[in-house]
């Protein structure tokens, strides 16, 4: 229906065409997401394994304001990403570019809030090795999981900027925005597990 079907393979009449009628790049992104799911899952399992096996695991978080705002921003950025994709599909290049940039901006705000939170925790004496509240494993797992997530967000922001600009320049098309969108939603999806497991379960009572 769109030129999506023709992106890979020089002509659909010569090859069987992509499996599941999904353009190859999109399929590859899904495969990456499956692999990345395992990477995050491994980290979360490590964290859960250690947390469960450690008596008196620290529960240092007092306020949920920051993490709530972060969650709100990331979820909203998924929505703006979708709007961007819809505009791109509708052929509204300007709007698609704008919404992609808005998504990137939201990502930047998220990263900013996240780093600010990190700095605060570091100020309180929390490092990878130790923290004032109990076992050092807390800092180690907190920083590695959120760090891995933050790395994904950062890569996502860069990708959004690059793809957005190149889309505007005509080098990329709506399909590329969709593929990138998959990644961005996935980063959001992971956050849905990080919040309850890493933040909310460690809330002081």
């Amino acid at each position: 229906m769109s030129q999506a079907d023709l992106t890979i393979g020089h002509s659909t009449t010569q090859t069987l065409g992509p499996a599941f009628s999904i353009p190859t790049k999109k399929f590859a992104m899904w495969l990456f997401i499956i692999a990345d799911t395992m990477t995050f899952a491994a980290c979360l399992v490590v964290y859960g394994f250690l947390r469960n096996g450690t008596p008196n695991w620290p529960r240092p978080f007092h306020s949920i304001t920051n993490v709530a705002i972060m969650t709100f921003i990331l979820l909203t950025s998924s929505l703006t990403m979708l709007i961007g994709l819809r505009s791109a599909r509708a052929g509204d290049k300007g709007a698609a570019f704008r919404w992609t940039m808005i998504t990137a901006a939201l990502g930047i705000v998220f990263a900013f809030l996240h780093i600010r939170e990190w700095l605060e925790l570091i100020d309180h004496g929390m490092t990878l090795l130790k923290n004032p509240w109990g076992t050092g494993l807390f800092g180690a797992s907190f920083f590695s999981i959120t760090g891995l997530h933050l790395t994904h967000v950062t890569c996502g922001i860069i990708a959004l900027l690059v793809v957005g600009v190149r889309y505007k320049g005509g080098r990329y098309n709506a399909d590329d925005i969709e593929v990138l969108g998959l990644y961005w939603h996935f980063v959001d999806l992971v956050w849905m597990f990080v919040v309850p497991l890493v933040y909310l379960l460690n809330l002081a009572h």
Partner: peptide, 30 residues
């Protein structure tokens, strides 16, 4: 608490994957 949170998180993830990532409108095989 963990159980409840995980259930909710899985529902969230399912919604995101099905609708934000459009799995729902892809081929069932996919």
């Amino acid at each position: 608490m963990l159980t409840r949170m995980l259930v909710v998180a899985c529902v969230e993830a399912g919604l995101a994957a099905l609708f934000f990532m459009h799995l729902w409108t892809e081929k069932r095989g996919f």
